[in-house]
Design a protein around this nucleic acid. Structure first.
Lengths: 240, 240
DNA sequence: TAGTGGTCTAGACCACATA
DNA sequence: ATGTGGTCTAGACCACTAC
């Protein structure tokens, strides 16, 4: 489809990660190794890694190498948690999947997934923990049924890194996720799960995930405690 | 301080923008022109513009040129507004400055600005409008007094693009802003100004602005209506 | 010292926009 | 046809990390 050479490199790295050959914290081949392996110049490899570093999938460590970061597709803006005034560095979130079922799309879900109302969808509800006790996020996720048919079966173990499973089991490679962040207040049901009071502020994140050759396949709503969440960016120059 | 050549280019462009020589929507000199002007290679110019494009200060238009965007220092994450399910493209916000005064730092402000409690600060309170009627954001801003001494005087006109004024009048060039986004609920005072109900969700953005050779000079809290705000990002590959 | 990523250059060629 | 940004190359040299 796209004839840019650096896509060859990006695709290669993406696939190594999505397939699980490379996972969080792993070291990539060096830039010169990759350039030989894929028959492109080092400059092209650098450009590809630049892009992936920019989208937080990789990070470089001068003198050591390039690593797979934990800010990839399987995570999200919700990596940026903070406790009071702490550093806000990434924290690993453990997930459970208390609800999974095959169902039909409501009007809202159909709209978001761009499918017909009443079409089959696979629904997952997950909870995210930083310790073993209290969930701090609730994740509701709808998948187009034909893409992940069988994911709802209780005998399938759903790992923390869901997308690696989706790739292996359903040959579906998530390439892009779009996220929209806003604020809201907790209803009584949400408040109960998150151990906060009804009416407390929550952060709401909508995610749309796109698979290679398949387009939009997942719509997800994540709700998190506002007091546990902050998102950080820098405008202007980072080097100063 | 830093011997990277592309900083020469970044500094040049930053100064052109901060000084007002170039402003939102303006066309930059072409890459070859810049490379001749600053005696660096085109590749170095490209690298500098890459960085500035990445931090949303500039955008390129293939075949036409490179332009100053409206996502610069003077704006922020709060550029990303949306109405219902619309595109969420950038919308110009008009600002008024109903309150300005010289005062002393509270414990909280002193902590954030890393100064002594009770030290002199200049306080500005601004409101942001998209139409002429109802403000959708409230901006409270504290500056280190010695940096912008006189800004509180009522005869100084405060433009929408505050940082251009700060540069011209106080020789202070804002280089970097760090922003931290979270959610909260409106207290009665805030709710009244924003025309929402007490307890409604709001988005809260803290900003720390750093000036060249001066370090941290401004701390700002912006509060916005959650129903008017959403922040968008993409994880993974943008090119697909 | 060897290997990694980081900067910089110079030039070829491609793709888009405009007149 | 000309000028702009976009891709790709090949190579020199620097800076950080490890042994």
């Amino acid at each position: 489809m796209n004839k840019k050479l650096y896509h060859k490199v990006i695709d290669y790295i993406n696939e190594e990660i999505t397939s699980g050959n490379l996972t969080i914290g792993d070291l990539l081949p060096s830039e010169t190794q990759l350039s030989k392996l894929l028959n492109v110049s080092v400059g092209t490899v650098r450009k590809a890694i630049d892009k992936l570093e920019n989208s937080n999938l990789l990070y470089r460590h001068h003198g050591k190498g390039t690593y797979v970061s934990d800010y990839g597709f399987d995570n999200s803006m919700f990596n940026f948690f903070s406790y009071g005034s702490e550093t806000g560095s990434s924290i690993r979130i453990y997930k459970t999947t208390p609800i999974r079922k095959k169902t039909t799309a409501t009007t809202e879900v159909a709209l978001q997934l761009e499918i017909e109302r009443g079409a089959d969808v696979i629904y997952l509800e997950r909870r995210g923990y930083i310790d073993e006790k209290n969930p701090i996020i609730i994740e509701k996720s709808w998948w187009i049924a034909e893409v992940v048919e069988g994911l709802q079966k209780p005998n399938i173990h759903i790992p923390d890194l869901l997308y690696a499973l989706i790739y292996k089991k359903f040959a579906t490679q998530i390439i892009t996720s779009k996220e929209v962040l806003t604020a809201g207040i907790a209803d009584s049901k949400t408040a109960k799960i998150l151990h906060i009071n009804k009416g407390d502020p929550v952060v709401i994140l909508n995610r749309y995930s796109y698979a290679k050759d398949k387009g939009l396949v997942e719509f997800r709503i994540t709700t998190g405690r506002a007091d546990m969440f902050s998102y950080r960016t820098t405008i202007g120059n980072n080097d100063y």
